[in-house]
Computed example of a mutant assay.
Amino acid sequence: MTLGEALAAARQRIDRLDARLLLQYATGFSHADLLARPETPIIAPAYTQFSEWVERRAAGEPLAYLVGEAEFRGQVFQVSPAVLIPRPETEVLIDLALEKLRGLSTPRVLDLGTGSGIVAISLALECPAAEVVAVDISPEAVTVARNNAGRLGAAVDFRTSDWYANLAGEHFDLIASNPPYVAGGDPHLALDGLPYEPQLALTDGADGLDCIRRIVATAAAHLNPGGWLLFEHGYDQGEASRNLLAAAGFKETFTHPDLAGTDRVSGAYL
């Protein structure tokens, strides 16, 4: 089987771009190689791997889990089914956090529910003066995040914790979170590869606001005066998020859209 033949066959079953990327990962050839030398034979182990990946991708498994990595903000992060796949919408949360940290000499930052570590690691790399702590209830997720930080050279203190449980007496200048916010039973949970992602990181099994309520309710005990709380949420949760923040005594509540114009991040300061 040649590169060109394998690619043509795979394109009958999965997206063209997915087929090309999987073939590149399986064979080690570049995109330029595929274009310039489609007649090149594929060695048996590489073809076996490619065929397996095509089958799994055709069944709906996300490409990032097949190849074990995904790009986010110009960095390559390792991922596994223990963590969510990074999504570009989360860049809004990081951009807003960096804006709030501007001008602070040595801020302390907390990332709640770190998953693969994209928020904590991005903040540590882009705001090197910050002391970043990141927690997740999943030990497997913490392992993935810690490995990513090591590979990318980011100084982050990762811990296993159920939200603030293992942070007694600690205070921060900014708390950021991308918590589970999909309502239990939402039909989207059965689409776009979501059944393969960790459900604990996607949904609270209730109305989608349960984790946000917990984060907001306890944030004041861990924020320095003037400290900001920022969190990602669903497209229809902006108003409810602002109301929760205001009820907890936060000031200047706001909701910021993502690049698609959808409500994505809400926040306020103490």
Results as ranks from 00 to 15, higher is better:
G28W: 14
L93E: 04
V83Q: 04
A46V: 10
A46I: 13
S105F: 01
E91S: 09
L23W: 07
S80K: 02
V92E: 13
D95T: 15
T106N: 12
E52Y: 10
T90I: 10
F77L: 01
A58G: 12
W53T: 01
A70W: 14
E71K: 03
E140K: 12
S80M: 07
R102Q: 15
A59I: 00
G74I: 04
L63P: 05
L112I: 14
A36V: 13
A64I: 05
G113I: 07
V135R: 04
W53F: 09
K100F: 06
V54E: 08
R57N: 05
E39C: 12
E89P: 07
D95Y: 04
A46P: 07
E99G: 01
A97S: 14
L35M: 15
L22Q: 09
L96G: 05
A130T: 03
Q49A: 15
L93S: 02
Q75C: 13
S80F: 03
F50G: 08
Q24D: 06
L98S: 08
W53M: 09
R102T: 13
S105E: 15
V119P: 04
E89R: 05
L35K: 11
I121Q: 07
V135Q: 01
A58Q: 04
T48R: 15
R57A: 04
Y25G: 02
V109D: 05
S105W: 00
D111W: 06
A44Q: 15
S116H: 05
S51V: 10
P128N: 05
H31C: 11
V109Y: 01
G28I: 13
L21M: 15
L34W: 08
Q49K: 15
L23C: 10
L93A: 08
V132K: 07
F72E: 01
G115L: 03
Y25N: 14
A134H: 03
I85R: 02
A134C: 10
I85F: 02
A26E: 06
V92K: 07
L125D: 02
I94Q: 02
E140M: 04
E71P: 01
E39G: 13
L35D: 15
R56D: 02
Y65A: 10
E55F: 02
V76M: 12
L123M: 05
A97H: 11
R20G: 15
F50I: 12
E69W: 08
F77G: 03
F77C: 02
P45I: 14
L17N: 14
Y47K: 15
A97L: 10
I137E: 13
Y65T: 09
T90H: 08
L17D: 13
S30P: 07
D33R: 08
A64G: 05
S51H: 12
P38N: 11
V79L: 07
T114I: 09
L104M: 14
